[in-house]
């Protein structure tokens, strides 16, 4: 028996919104420690890895590990039936071919349940090595979203260049060029407004705007985003979920042909 109850059900809605652009289907791996998911987009350019720790749920029971393969478009249709202040419970029997979502209003006066068919998915699991990144940039997530949106109007790719002074995002296209520079700025009133750079050595990497824009669907999940970069390895874009876990995206860089 698997059962996970989240009073802050809106969080689950936001998590789904943050991945459904990239993934049509994925397997939620449920274990005693929590729920995790790892999947590549269909073009094998980016990867989503997320973790929701069991202690972040208000009630969590997982007698044995279960893999819940879901069509995320269909899951999103069901999640749209939950209000933002609903309590959400996910339930599945061991070896079940369906999953049940229960939505309760805070006053318990309305309780809805939706049963969805599960899928058997061939999951390609990738081993991601621990990496000491050359540059780690922490910045406001809305700022990152804004920059990705703005520069995608200029070109298909963004070059992210990081030095210890700051981080620069650049795009070029038929109409011209655009550059956005952010200086390191840790002395701000609110912690979430800080731009902090930890640099071992400068890096400059090129990434596809389309994927960066998809990653920014996670913006409502966290006030800050962390970009981890090293030369010639995938970028990691991480949104930390308070007291719960994380949503991480990996994106292969564009390389000179």
């Amino acid at each position: 028996m698997f059962e996970a109850r989240l009073v802050q059900g809106a969080l689950l809605k936001k998590v789904l919104e943050s991945i459904k652009d990239l993934l049509n289907e994925a397997t939620w791996e449920c274990a005693a420690t929590g729920i995790s998911l790892q999947a590549m987009d269909s073009s094998h350019v980016s990867l989503v890895a997320l973790n929701l720790r069991s202690d972040g749920f208000d009630k969590y029971r997982c007698d044995r590990n279960v893999s819940l393969g879901m069509n995320l478009t269909n899951m999103a249709k069901i999640m749209k039936c939950a209000s933002n202040d609903d309590v959400i419970t996910i339930k599945a029997q061991d070896d079940a071919d369906t999953v049940t979502f229960v939505f309760e209003t805070p006053n318990q006066e309305k309780i809805s349940d939706y049963e969805m068919k599960l899928m058997n998915l061939d999951t390609e699991h990738l081993g991601i090595p621990d990496t000491d990144y050359s540059c780690i940039v922490k910045m406001p997530s809305v700022e990152f979203q804004r920059i990705c949106r703005d520069l995608s109007q200029i070109g298909d790719s963004v070059v992210i260049s990081c030095t210890k002074e700051g981080v620069k995002f650049s795009a070029a296209g038929d109409l011209g060029t655009g550059n956005v520079k952010l200086a390191q700025n840790a002395n701000v009133d609110k912690e979430e407004e800080a731009v902090v750079i930890e640099m071992q050595e400068p890096v400059s990497l090129t990434f596809a705007c389309r994927y960066l824009n998809s990653f920014t669907k996670a913006t409502p999940l966290a006030p800050q985003v962390q970009l981890s970069m090293s030369s010639d390895v995938p970028l990691v874009v991480e949104y930390k979920l308070e007291d719960m876990g994380y949503v991480r995206y990996y994106l292969a860089p564009k390389i000179e042909d």
Partner: peptide, 14 residues
């Protein structure tokens, strides 16, 4: 023009 690389070039299938 730079070309898009594949993630599996970096991470092994396990």
């Amino acid at each position: 023009t730079p070309v898009q690389n594949d993630l599996q070039e970096y991470f092994a299938l396990v």
